[in-house]
Amino acid sequence: MRSTNYNKPSQELAIKIRGLTKSYGKVRALRGIDLDVGRGEIFGFLGPNGAGKTTTIRCLLDIIRPDGGKSSLLGIDPQADPVSIQALTGYLPGEMQFYDNLTVERQLRFFSDMRNLRTEWGYVRQLAERLDLDMKPQIKNLSKGNKQKIGVIQALMHRPELLLLDEPTSGLDPLMQQEVVSLLRDANTTGATIFFSSHIMSEVENIAKRVGIIRKGEIVEVAETSILTKRTLNRLTIRFKQAVEVRELGNLPEVEILSQIDGNSINLQVSGDMENLIHALGRLPVLDLVSERPSLEEVFMTYYKNKE
């Protein structure tokens, strides 16, 4: 199942991981990960909770030490020279805590000091404005979403070459999620490589060009996002104005009728694109249609079923 892309010359790689292992006591969090991410790429790191996404990112930044394997970021070994890596990287942790008594601006100045940088405060204010974040209040008075915005700003404010983001849109409302995605795209346009983890399929589809899927500490798939999207499952509940003959829908490729609730409603599952189904529905008296994305775990199970 594992597909890799080892053919890229290393100078083109932003991230190179070989055989990375990490255990917490008896729990094997990473079981020999191999992964390459090219420079300038937006790479989605997808996996259910507990799959090993956070552990991978923390190993790459030398926050925790792997038990085995090798990695390099921008051609630098994080174990040998963590400070150089950290200087070139912007990191957004999955769980973030700040100094509650500081104002947003003071907290950001603290992070700026930790980098020994002369931060472009015009740029920081611009980021805060785009994320609709007031820099004056104390952090203890902020919501989880606003704290997430601080995390995003501190990761971006020094214009890093590489962004390692652990669930960057967590806790944000849909509008702000879009704004964060837009900020990441802007950073990518100026040359930054973006490696971000998520357990939300649609989020990854929205931004990443390639996706790595991790499950139980192993990379199970590395693929172009478009390929993954074609395999994506959608579940539809369709209500008709009157009872209709739905058998022909079930005969369409990639469409499976799960249940027929009554004469007027059916539940369908579609894998890949829905073009054929939409064409077929165009000839029927559709009252409404509700689409639901399956959970990541269900998607994995479908992969495995198909592979078997």
Binding site: V83, S84, Q86, Y91, E95, Q97
Partner: peptide, 13 residues
């Protein structure tokens, strides 16, 4: 308190 993770990811050493 969960702050060190982010602080130590800065280039301090």
């Amino acid at each position: 308190r969960g702050r060190l993770d982010l602080i130590i990811a800065h280039p301090i050493g």
